[in-house]
Amino acid sequence: MTRLRRIDAVTTEFAEAAERHLDDVHAFLVYLTGDRTVAEDLTAETFARALERWRRFDPSRGSVRAWLCQLARSTALDHFRADERRRRREGRFAAAEPREGDGPVFGEGLSPELEHALARLSAAEREVVALRVVLELEGDVAARVLGISATACSTRLSRALQKLEKEVSAGVAA
């Protein structure tokens, strides 16, 4: 009986956290993968992992959002590794390109130039943009999620934004 109550409590807490942070995690994964379908699958996978490890979450070490983003990144990396192994096995070495023809990937309302520019960024650049710009995480929190120093995080963000600017300008000019 106590065990069932505990499970119910965990489920309730987790459900509240999932409701609050689902869009953030999903947005982060969309930026990271550049693929909405894959991002949806990875989001579900991330929350499944989060539910498994919910009891291990330590609020003193960071916010739920940052922890979920770390889990999401780890899930995405696992996906990339598995995908790379699969492509290597199948002899397809070409990098997967975002499916631009299926409509906007990175969000409704983005200009085609910005959508294209985002697609041309690497996943490493898109993830820092997602964390710092889209999710508006603090620099040190974003750096912790990415497993790098705050300085490296700033540098990466700077390069990514400059690249975006350049790509957007080039797109507009064309």
């Binding site: 489920t11 999932a18 869009d23 947005a27 930026y31 906007p104 990175f106 969000g107 200009s111």
Partner: peptide, 30 residues
């Protein structure tokens, strides 16, 4: 310096689909 880009990115933040919401809401602890 990149306000025009960042504002657009924030305004167009991807949103989870209802199907994904249902999928996550249906998760139960193992």
């Amino acid at each position: 310096d990149f306000d025009h880009i960042t504002e657009q990115l924030r305004a167009s933040k991807p949103v989870a689909s209802p199907a994904l919401r249902e999928r996550v809401a249906g998760l139960r602890p193992a």
